[in-house]
Amino acid sequence: MLVNISREELVIGIVSLVEEVLETKLIADLNADLTLFGLDSIKTIKLVVKIEEHYQIEFLDEELLIEYFSSVNKILELLSYK
């Protein structure tokens, strides 16, 4: 599903979804710990749903760990399997 999307597009897409959920601008560091930007368990649920809706994918149960959504790079890594 995601093969047609370039990495640049994906980065921009994920960053904007994350910013939308966290209601804040992110700094340029893709490894930044999103919990420092206010990512909590409820916002993680929102983020998961937004990513699933936007890219029309579904994460597997074992992928639904807070850890895997704790930085933009980690999310990108997760999406590289999709």
Binding site: S41, T44, I45, V48, E52, F59, D61, L65, I66
Partner: peptide
């Protein structure tokens, strides 16, 4: 190491059903 905390998937599943 921090415990790998699971995301509560119930609302995510409901959202998928609706979607």
């Amino acid at each position: 190491k921090p415990v790998k905390k699971k995301i509560d998937s119930r609302l995510i599943r409901v959202h998928r059903i609706i979607r």
